[in-house]
């Protein structure tokens, strides 16, 4: 199994390539303990693990696409550290597609590009066949609502009966269909990325040869083209409109929610908003399940994210 690390800049690759060192990159008092605990766990469970790849970019916001110089610098740093390279790309409007067309030429032959938008895949296949497209986790449509999905695993179907069928459906996605994995193969997509699901994951589709990457310790809940943080610099009537200019206001703060209105026993659960996207942190049982999947061979790569994946380059 391969280990990858999600980085913000070339400077992140200065120093030891260890989870414990990467964990120090997160300065948030709220997120830091989550990241540090995971780093210790990685060091304890897989002491021989080596980071052989880095991921750069974001799947969640086209306004955080890096400037060409930043991408070139990170790509050069990865080469210097002999790390394989994955470029993460977001869902995108017309403007975002245009920016990506300027960035893709900076990538090297065989680099991976994670796509979160069918339009990006279309551009990659037609104009940049030397790059390797990977289906991103946003295109994996499994529900992962942390308010309730974790309860399905322990007390399936809180609404009533029908437990088994519903839980099985929720642990899967369209990747469950051989017709879909065949389609991905025809499209030149040999790998998919996923989040670790609160309700558990059925990864049996991986037995058909599709490589599976999973991110930890954060999963995405929901994302939007209407950004709360971007509203900070607008008159009230102009706030939260899609397409509004962005000053990367999201980089200045984090918003932590506590599920105080839960009808279930998970009232202390935390959700995190960074910019336009909400995230959950993996629980200990979720990490246990993920490492079991990895040990069983159905996860071929884990990506350690020392920060929420909403970073300005």
């Amino acid at each position: 199994m391969e280990w990858s690390v999600h980085i913000r800049s070339a400077q992140d690759l200065d120093g030891d390539l260890t989870a414990e060192r990467f964990a120090t990159l997160e300065s948030s008092a709220r997120l830091g303990p989550v990241v540090t605990a995971l780093a210790r766990r990685i060091a304890r469970l897989t002491p021989s693990a080596r980071f052989t790849r880095c991921a750069f970019g974001t799947e969640f916001c086209e306004n955080l696409l890096p400037p060409p110089a930043a991408l070139a610098a990170v790509r050069a740093a990865a080469r210097n550290r002999t790390l394989a390279f994955t470029f993460l790309t977001p869902y995108a409007g017309t403007a975002g597609i245009g920016k990506l067309r300027e960035l893709f030429p900076l990538l090297h032959e065989g680099d991976e590009v994670v796509f979160s938008d069918w339009g990006v895949l279309n551009v990659l296949r037609r104009e940049f066949p030397r790059l390797r497209p990977v289906q991103g986790r946003l295109l994996n449509k499994s529900l992962r609502d942390p308010r309730v999905m974790g309860l399905y695993a322990s007390a399936p179907d809180p609404g009533g009966a029908l437990a088994g069928n519903t839980l099985a459906a929720l642990q899967r996605s369209n990747l469950d269909n051989e017709s879909y994995t065949r389609l991905l193969a025809r499209l030149g997509v040999a790998a998919v990325e996923m989040d670790n699901l609160p309700q558990g994951m059925d990864l049996s589709f991986a037995d058909r040869g599709l490589a599976v990457t999973v991110y930890l310790p954060f999963g995405f809940i929901s994302t939007s083209r209407s950004c709360m943080a971007a509203g900070l610099h607008y008159r009230k009537p102009d706030k939260f409109g899609p397409g509004a200019p962005c000053r990367h206001e999201c980089q200045t703060h984090l918003l932590e929610y506590t599920y105080t209105n839960s009808p279930f026993p998970n009232r202390d659960q935390k959700f995190y908003l960074k910019g336009n996207t909400y995230f959950y942190a993996h629980s200990e049982p979720m990490l246990d399940a993920l490492f079991e999947h990895a040990a069983g061979g159905r996860v071929s790569r884990l990506v350690f994210q020392p920060r929420l994946p909403m970073v300005e380059s």
């Binding site: 609404g159 994302t223 009808p263």
Partner: peptide, 10 residues
């Protein structure tokens, strides 16, 4: 790109 449910319980 919203991976949540509108289930009546939540």
């Amino acid at each position: 790109f919203c991976a949540t449910t509108h289930h009546h319980s939540v």
